[in-house]
Amino acid sequence: MSKKQKHATAYWKENIKYLAILLSIWFGVSYGAGILLKDELNEIKVGGFKLGFWFAQQGSIYVFVILIFVYVRLMNKLDKKYGFNE
């Protein structure tokens, strides 16, 4: 295996790890907090919001935005680490 191929394999492996972590959070805030655990979380109130309702209509969207920018940062670093940046 050439050096470039080795780099490519290692790069892909780390990429998949990032994806797994970020997508678990993605699932957690929307399907978890906003849907499956909605009734439990609605017992908690933050200001005028019931928490489950807040996650479904506001919170999950904020987290989605943050997730993408975190991904962009992580990947830019990863590109550099393996010399795939340009």
Binding site: G34, K38, F53, A56, S60, I61
Partner: peptide
């Protein structure tokens, strides 16, 4: 609350789009 499907559905898709 039922309207949340559109809010989460039409934004969460961008996470999939960006990552996958």
């Amino acid at each position: 609350y039922d309207g949340s499907v559109y809010l989460m559905g039409w934004t969460g898709g961008y996470v999939l789009l960006a990552l996958l």
